[in-house]
Each structure stands twice: as structure tokens, then as C-alpha cells.
């Protein structure tokens, strides 16, 4: 027992150290780039906000339900489609659809969880991975059948809002993603530490058997966390629609990027996702800023994911 606590403490400290290092690196890079290319900072932070706001719910599911949801981005895509058609039908602004989208996606998530994932919780981890992969395909293809591969977009005036400073123009709308990400991180922290349901979820995440013994309904907790995560992603689906065109595959890169960010931060470390997102967002925007390197921006993420995961696994091996 004592040993276990000790282990956790060690892990926690390692997590903190990692977060600190990530934050320091990001800060140093930020200052350097700020002096040199201010638009990169502006775009990079907004991009980071988008990534983080999508990745945080995935981190929540991975940290508590211990499932890599490979359909994560696809759920956001579905939410965006639902928002699009609701807005078209009612002539309303996607911003008003944020809460309904969250509710609908949460419900969808709950159903999907009950019908599929819950049954696979005791199966080997790899079965779960393949299962959510299958769910991702199914979601993408349902949308593909219903709406074809055509892209949809809602043109909105306010998304091109910008501020001029000196000779630079800074678009600002996407700071809504940054705000959302911070809101998610803070909100989740409060939820997990202050509320009964949240505390129960944390207990279940750390030790499902023990939690079951003290009378917590484990599957209910898992389902709740999954639905909550999907509510957050659903809200992001509506917000995403304000800015971007949507098509059936639009969510899939976000699945991968979210996993990358969660893995970079270390599982269970939600604030770390913010730091990792800043690193990713800034590096991508830095490459986008130059014509010669523009096309390579998409690869940054793969290099980061491989470097970080490998770096982590090597240090694990040494400890073992």
C-alpha cells in the first residue's frame, strides 16, 4: 500500500517536471518568435487553442476510462454536421448551437458507450483500439452516405474580426478556442476535485476494483465521463463550424493530433495538454510562415509525436 502511494507520488513529480519543461520550452520559443514574427505567435496560439480544446476531452477519457477513443475527432465532425443542418433549418448562428450540440453529442456518446465500448472494457486493450477505429469509420461513412463528400461552410462576418497593430493585421476570432481550452482545463479540474461525481470518476480511474468495492457504480462513472468528454467535443464541433468548412473526414486529423498531445503531456496530465498544444501550434505556424517550408507544417506533428513517444519509452525502459 505504502509502495503504491510512493509510486504515484514519484509519477506525479515526474509529470510535474515534464509539464514544467514543456512550459519552459514553449515560453522560450514564444519569446524568440514574438520578436521576430509576431503573426506566427498570434496564429500559433489560436491554433494551439483549437488543438487543446479538442485534445482535453480525449485526455479525460484516456485518463479515467483508459480507452484511446480513435473516433474522437469523428464525434466532433458529427456534432459540426448536426450544427450545420440545425442552423440552416432554423437560420441561427452556430454560436447559439454550442450548448445543444454539446447535449446531443453527449447523448450520442452515452448511447455509443453503453452499446459498444462498455462491453469491450474488459477485453484486451487492442480490441478496444480496433473497436473505436471501427466506430470512427462507421461515423465517417454514415455522414458520407447522408451528405456525400461535399464540403459545407457557414459564412460568418465576425470570424474575420482583426486588430491592426503597426503594419501587422492580427485576426482574433480563434481566440475563442483558446478561451474554450482554458475553460475546459479549469472546469475539469474543478469538476474532478470538487464534485462528488468527479471525485468518484477519479477514484474509478485510479482503481476501478477498489471503487466498486466502496460502492461506486464503475460503469456509470465511465459512461458519465465519456458523455462529458463528448459534450465538450460536441461544443467544439459547433465552434469549429464557425471557422472551418466541414466534410466527412474533417475530424480524423484531430483524433491523431489529440492523441499526440495527450501522449506528449503524459496520460492524466490535463494542464500539460495546453503546453503541448502551444508547442505544436507554434511550430506548425512557424513553418507555415515561410513559403519554402509551408507544405511541411503538417509533418511537424508526426515528428513531435514520434520523438516524444520514443523519448518517453526510452526513459521508461531505463527505469524498469
Amino acid at each position: 500500500m505504502a509502495a503504491k502511494q510512493n509510486g504515484n507520488k514519484g509519477k506525479h513529480m515526474a509529470l510535474k517536471r515534464r509539464t514544467a519543461i514543456l512550459a519552459a520550452l514553449a515560453a522560450a520559443a514564444t519569446v524568440l518568435i514574438l520578436l521576430w514574427k509576431p503573426t506566427v505567435i498570434n496564429n500559433g496560439l489560436q491554433q494551439a487553442g483549437l488543438y487543446a480544446a479538442i485534445a482535453i476531452p480525449m485526455g479525460l477519457v484516456l485518463g479515467i476510462v483508459h480507452i484511446v477513443n480513435l473516433a474522437h475527432g469523428e464525434f466532433m465532425m458529427v456534432a459540426a454536421y448536426a450544427t450545420y443542418f440545425a442552423c440552416k433549418a432554423l437560420g441561427m448562428d452556430p454560436l447559439f448551437a454550442v450548448l445543444p450540440a454539446a447535449a446531443v453529442t453527449a447523448l450520442l456518446g452515452w448511447v455509443v458507450f453503453r452499446l459498444t465500448i462498455q462491453r469491450a472494457l474488459k477485453a484486451p486493450e487492442l480490441n478496444q483500439l480496433i473497436l473505436t477505429f471501427g466506430i470512427a469509420i462507421a461515423l465517417t461513412q454514415v455522414v458520407n452516405i447522408l451528405f456525400t463528400s461535399q464540403t459545407y461552410k457557414i459564412p460568418l462576418e465576425y470570424v474575420s474580426a482583426s486588430i491592426d497593430i503597426g503594419e501587422n493585421t492580427f485576426p482574433v476570432w480563434s481566440y475563442v478556442f483558446v478561451a474554450t481550452a482554458i475553460l475546459y482545463a479549469v472546469g475539469l479540474r474543478l469538476f474532478l476535485t470538487r464534485t462528488t461525481a468527479g471525485k468518484a470518476a477519479v477514484a474509478v480511474g485510479q482503481n476501478p476494483r477498489g471503487a466498486a468495492i466502496v460502492g461506486i457504480d464503475v460503469n456509470r462513472s465511465y459512461g458519465l465521463v465519456f458523455a462529458l468528454a463528448l459534450a465538450l467535443v460536441g461544443a467544439m464541433g459547433a465552434l469549429f463550424l464557425t471557422k472551418s468548412a466541414i466534410f466527412p473526414q474533417v475530424g480524423s486529423p484531430y483524433t491523431m493530433k489529440s492523441f499526440c498531445l495527450v501522449a506528449m503531456a503524459g496520460i492524466g496530465n490535463i494542464p500539460g495538454i495546453l503546453g503541448a498544444s502551444v508547442l505544436l501550434g507554434l511550430s506548425e505556424q512557424l513553418l507555415r510562415a515561410f513559403r519554402e517550408t509551408r507544405a511541411w507544417a503538417d509533418i511537424v506533428f508526426f515528428v513531435l509525436i514520434i520523438a516524444v513517444i520514443l523519448g518517453r519509452s526510452v526513459s521508461w525502459r531505463r527505469k524498469k
Binding site: A2, A3, N6, G7, K9, G10, K11, A14, K319
Partner: peptide, 10 residues
């Protein structure tokens, strides 16, 4: 022979 697991000496 010494083996330490993050703090705990096993």
C-alpha cells in the same frame, strides 16, 4: 544489489 522504484527501495 540495490533496486529502487521511484522512492521505494525494494
Amino acid at each position: 544489489l540495490l533496486c529502487r522504484f521511484s522512492g521505494l527501495v525494494a
